[in-house]
Every structure is written in C-alpha cells, then in structure tokens.
Amino acid sequence: MTKKAVLYSSALFILLAACFAGALCLGSAPIAPVDVFRAMTNGGDGQTIGIINQIRLPRALFAALVGGMLALSGALLQALLKNPLVDPFITGISSGAAFGAACAIMAGASGLLAPSMAGAALAMFIVYRISLSAGVLNLIRLLLAGVMMGSFFSSLIMLLNALFSKDLIKVVFWLMGDLSNINPGLLLYSAIALFAAIGVAMYFANDLNILTTGEDEARSMGVKVEMIKAVYFSIAGILTAISVALSGVIGFVGLIVPHVVRAVVGPDMRLMIPCSFLAGAIFLLASDTLARTAFLPSEIPVGVITGLMGVPVFIYFMMKGRTQ
C-alpha cells in the first residue's frame, strides 16, 4: 500500500509539475521558457513579470485547485453513494449556485461569488434535510433529492429567464465555466478549504472503505456510519460549492477523473483521495492551457476541452475494463 501510494503520488506529482511548466510557458504572449523562469524570480521586463506572476500563475493555480476539488468531490460521492455515474453536479449544488448567480446577474449585482455560494449552500441544506429520515441519511433519497433539486433550481432559472430575459445570456456564459478572471485574493482561502477537506477525508478514509462494503457491516465493525455519511457529503458539497462559485460549471472532471483513477489505483479510498485530487488538478490544468491557447486569438470554454479530452479517455478505460 505505502509503496503503491508513493509510486502513484510521485508519478502524478511529476505530471502535475510538467503541466504547470506548460501552463506557465504557453499563452497568447510569446514568452520563452528562460524568460518565464527569470520572471518567476522577478527578473526581466515588467510586462513579462506581470503576465507570468499575476496572470498565468494564479490562473494555473486556480485550474489545479478547481480540478482537484471537482475530482475529489466526485470520488467521495461515487464511493459514498456506491454509484459510478454520480458526479458532483448531481447533488443539485451546482444548480443552486447557478440560481444564486442568476439572481445576482438579473438584479444587476456586481459580485457573483457570494450569491452563488449562498445558492449552493441553500441547495446543499435542502438536499441534506430531505434525505434525512429519523436521523438516518438515506443515500438513495440523497441521490433523488439531488436530481430533484437540480431540476427545481434549473426551472427557477428558466422562470427568471421568462420574466427578466435581458441578462440571461450572461448567466448562460457563467454556467459554461470559466477560469479567466478569478480574483487571486481567493486563492489562499480556496487552498485552505481544499487541504482541510483532504485532511479530514484522509482521516476517515478507512471508515469510508468499510462503509462501501455495506452499512450493516460497517456498523458491526464499529464505524459511526451516520457521522461518516454526513462528513463526506458535507466535504463533497462544500468543495463543489466553492469550485462552482469560483469558476461556474466545468463538466466531466468530477465524473471522469475518479473513474480513471479507480481503474488504475483500485478502490481503496486512502489512495483514491490523494490520487483523484492530483489527477483532477492535472486534467483541468492541461484542459485550461489548451482552451486558452489552441484557438488563438480567441479563448474557448474550458468545458469544451474537458468534454473533448475526457470522453475518449473515459471510453478507453471502459473498453479496457470490459476486455479484462
């Protein structure tokens, strides 16, 4: 286990570092790798230093953070709900966030972060409350409630569209997902939230492993089943809420990455948690670098790239699994 963990983590770290180097060196302004390195140590001309340290670096860090959050959230939910088709957006949280953002856009509010976080929190609370039955979190109900709340909030967005259609197009753009203009001041808070989530998730990882074999079995082995379910739903929900509020809805990451990681490292959550985070970070970082450089001078929505890159990889792993 330890040997495997070190091997996979090191390989993923090396890949992540390579993706970071690529993200910093590639962009619409041609900057040689030597100048990138110099700029990172505050050498060279002011414009290059600015582009590297204030534009490309924060964006790369956000891409990695959001990718890591979505993949981790997907991995936790898939394990918790024992359903490989679950992705973070099935919990209705993204629709709640979108509803918050839509209200803010229609009301002419300037910042979207707080309203989308509020919308996500509201959706999460409602889904959680609906799923509780006599103090027990019913996982099937959780899935249904998530899908239902997702539809409910989508309908509310459509209602807003019908009543005040002026700015709907901005909501649509926001929903497409975007990493181009995130406030760097939020980087630290997001990173703290993510690493705290990883810490808690790793602490209870073995309990989650046991829980995946069945609730009764877990209970008989002394696992505090209800607490574990609440903890992992909350972690997944909070990570999804933060990532959606930061960057809109970026699809496929939370569904595909945990699948691929599971196919390689196996179902043990002690490995799945760090590896999903790292693989998600790599996947979104690479996708975003492509999104902003492949069709210059225009940038394309990163969700297009995650779909185009992710689906073939997903199909490959599915086919491979079938032949095995």
Binding site: S28, I51, R56, N181, L296, P297, S298, E299
Partner: peptide
C-alpha cells in the same frame, strides 16, 4: 468576431 472571448494576457500584451 463581434464579441470575442479573449485571454486577459492579450489585454496586457
């Protein structure tokens, strides 16, 4: 295009 989606570093450049 009429309203291109651009990368912020284009503005700096």
């Amino acid at each position: 295009s009429e309203y291109p989606k651009i990368t912020p570093e284009d503005v700096v450049k």
